[in-house]
Design a protein around this nucleic acid. Structure first.
Lengths: 159, 159
DNA sequence: AGTGAATACTTGACTAGTCAACCATTCGGT
DNA sequence: ACCGAATGGTTGACTAGTCAAGTATTCACT
């Protein structure tokens, strides 16, 4: 066991082993998310939408109503400029509608359209299937531990 | 416990709870990597280099010698065009040197320069510190389980 | 009421990643 | 030796994310 190269190390074909277990975990985390993103994209892309666009639409649906641009940015952990341009693209596809609010004319209220809603709903099942498939290798206990670990990493990075 | 909203759910302020534990794990994974990437970028960026550029330099150092463009792409899990342009930028900064090989004139051999090597070495300690900090909240056993889980997810997505 | 700071975006310029199309070189089979 | 296919890369066009700078509106305070 000790002598066998780890899964990640084989994948990156690095000659020297990892200096420590933490470094290995970081590389594994970055690579895994890369692979997962591709996995999910392959489900969403055929519907004429990108994974990020799907993500925004799901946020808007989950919000239950309109959200200002910056609020969307906070939920996506993304700066405002990126959100503005995402919304530009979504509006061009008629999946989102933007209106300036009269109470505070600085804000732009963003809402998902019926067409957008229909699209997200059509993707619910296939995306959930893909989620399940990605985690099929983990037992319920492993899954719990996994989520806890991720929470801990997020907390540590934020600190 | 059952009644309290999960960490991720609070963060995204979604009104409805996750349909299942797997969905929660997927969102947690995507968000965690996002946060981690920012965390690491903040260490690397001040040295005038991006996280991806650092990644390429580390691959080249780890290889011990020159690598053809496509080989770099495989280790980064990235398509060739992106790699070509990355190398363009790195070459402009004199951190990488490219030469066409005489044995197979289609290939472009890429090697890290002395300047590049010096830069990566200067980043070794701070990056390792950041890695350790990000995972400081996990016990050694948790860390092992975490890596195993990531390996399993990667395997499932590849399948 | 009036000015200066804060808020909510928007725009420009750049890094990065993807797909499709393209060129050059090499390989395989006859 | 030669022609078609495969390999290795580059270029163009697009999505996406970041920072810096700009605009419009609102707030806070005298």
């Amino acid at each position: 066991m000790k002598s066998r190269a780890s899964a990640v190390q084989q994948e990156i074909k690095q000659s020297r082993p990892f200096a420590n277990r933490e470094q290995e975990a970081i590389v594994a985390l970055l690579r895994t998310t890369d692979v997962l993103r591709r996995h999910l994209s392959s489900v969403v892309d055929p519907h004429g939408i990108t994974l990020q666009q799907y993500n925004v639409l799901r946020i808007l649906r989950g919000a239950g109503g309109a959200l200002p641009t910056m609020e969307i940015g906070e939920r996506m952990i993304e700066e405002a400029p990126g959100v503005t341009r995402m919304l530009d693209r979504l509006e061009k596809k008629n999946l989102v509608k933007r209106t300036r609010q009269s109470t505070d004319r600085r804000q732009v209220q963003c809402a998902i359209t019926k067409e957008g809603l229909r699209l997200v709903e059509a993707l619910d099942a296939p995306v959930n299937d893909a989620d399940l498939a990605a985690l099929a290798g983990l037992s319920p206990e492993q899954l719990d531990g996994f989520i806890r670990s991720l929470d801990a990493v997020r907390a540590a990075c934020a600190a």
